[in-house]
Design a protein around this nucleic acid. Structure first.
Lengths: 289, 289
DNA sequence: TTAAAAATGTGCGGCAGCGCACAGATTGGC
DNA sequence: GCCAATCTGTGCGCTGCCGCACATTTTTAA
């Protein structure tokens, strides 16, 4: 039984947390971001640390969104959306990663998708059905641009470009989840770990970030020991390095060789649909054949 | 390595098949529908064998679609969409089930979702991104109402009700795929088989249909023998019966008890989002609490 | 009528991953 | 500086499922 530590009951959603000034529930144990208060900085269009969906927007469409966007800091483990709960905010990650996690009643869990600066979380709410069965948790602490669902909806109605981008992203997300189904079914822990490390790195745009074995195990839906073993092999091979929660990819293409085809499959689809906004860190663009 | 028989290379898409009058590729071996020619019958709004998305439409919205809908017969194993290919038709199953299947290069496969009379296939094409990584195959032979993507798109622009229904269905589909990720990761073959049998029955609206162990194995991403063993247990318990490809559910609630929570989770979500159009066969509606 | 194909049943060795237990190393809190 | 919490490493027996081989029955094709 794969179980995430220290989450005896569901923590309050981040909308409550941030509104009440509270720091956010960690998931699992983490010493990070415990006092992470939001910055509420206005967001500039020319910002280099930009969410890639936003920066792909034409200027006139972007102007619809930017007045309402606020940059917030999201500590690791923050729950952005609880299963079954309504989401009132849309998040555009800039330097954080959000994991969509599906849980069972016995505590077993698995990550269904991962969203970084190439996408957004909560936009599905604008599509009609507010809640989903998946929890959205901040996997890697960082910033996100946030706006109210209401503002987002009205911008969406006035911007075809935004709608188009959103639909492309939705499609890419669907591909990612679908590929995760096969991958979890047919590939080894080591392959899946490698794939997931690459996804994370691509989402973040940097080769190093914080993630414990415990956390990665919960995302892959396997035992912590299984991750330790697999990670140990990758470390021995000189492909990655890690130490008490700090992971670093040393050899991106080497790691790709150990990962299953699922990494490249999804990566290619992101490139195809989102182009330059796709996940691309450390990847050499190659044809599918 | 889980491999589907007799599909050495990708068969042509159904649009080609039907247009050329050819019968459709079977997947895996099947003696059914080999000569299945399309009927091209005009579709009536009052039709009792109706797709439930269509029948949920207000009359004025339905009038936008019905002139362009043609009822076609889809033999078992017909491939409606090949991975990576563009889809030019939208299908609204009435008495058939379509499986969305994700495949690996080594032939391993797994079903990511199942669409019956409560949904549609190909509408994602109207969302911008035409192709997906998933193959769409007719799992259970039957009829579907079909129209061109072009007509569908234009109807979609003029009907808010249609858009709304479609978005709800999309949400339900996402829930189904997400739940499949956890389920495939954490539940036994027997649990997953039971879940899938119930889904099939609910999609079809009848307790009996055609499905071989081989086929179910490919959908669950396990060995054929594994299905034989699991199905044998369910048969012994008097919950189902089967014989050379004909499956029948004898005790719906008994089978539910053997299935994992994933069945009810998704079933509830379909009810919530699609109401009366949700999958409901043989289910007693119960609250989630 | 006969042969071939399809569908199901069964047994067996092997292995990836599970559950559990415990040990060492590092870090943060006091 | 010490203690407690966190993170990682390792070993061991167990089990669910895999891969393979082969038998039996039913259906289809010739």
């Amino acid at each position: 039984m794969r179980q995430i530590n220290a989450v005896p009951e569901h923590p309050p959603s981040v909308s409550e947390q941030v509104q009440s000034g509270w720091a956010g529930t960690r998931y699992p144990h983490s010493r990070y971001g415990v006092m992470g208060l939001e910055q509420n900085t206005p967001v500039q269009h020319a910002d280099p640390c930009q969410n890639q969906l936003l920066s792909a927007l034409p200027h006139k469409d972007a102007e619809l969104l930017f007045p309402d966007l606020k940059r917030v800091h999201l500590p690791e483990g923050t729950s952005i959306r609880e299963p079954g709960q309504v989401m009132h905010q849309v998040y555009f990650p800039t330097t954080c990663i959000v994991s969509l996690v599906c849980e069972l009643t016995d505590g077993c869990s698995v990550e269904t998708a991962m969203v970084g600066r190439e996408g957004c979380v909560g936009a599905a709410g604008s599509m009609g059905a507010e809640a989903t069965n998946a929890r959205a948790i901040v996997q890697s602490a960082g910033d996100a641009d946030r706006m109210s669902l209401q503002s987002f909806k009205s911008a969406l109605q006035r911007s075809d470009a935004l709608m188009q981008l959103l639909l492309y992203f939705g499609q890419a997300l669907l591909t990612q989840i679908g590929q995760t189904v096969v991958c979890n079914r047919h590939h080894t822990v080591e392959q899946r770990l490698a794939r997931r490390l690459l996804w994370s790195s691509d989402c973040l745009g940097v080769p190093q970030w914080h993630a414990t074995h415990e956390w990665m195990a919960a995302m892959l839906g396997v035992r912590r020991e299984g991750v330790t073993t697999a990670a140990g092999k990758l470390k021995c091979a000189g492909l990655i390095d890690y130490r008490r929660g700090e992971v670093r990819i040393l050899d991106h293409s080497g790691l790709e060789a150990r990962a299953c085809e699922c990494y490249r499959e999804v990566s290619n689809e992101y490139q195809r649909l989102l182009g330059a906004s796709g996940r691309a860190y450390g990847r050499k663009r190659t044809s599918r054949e």
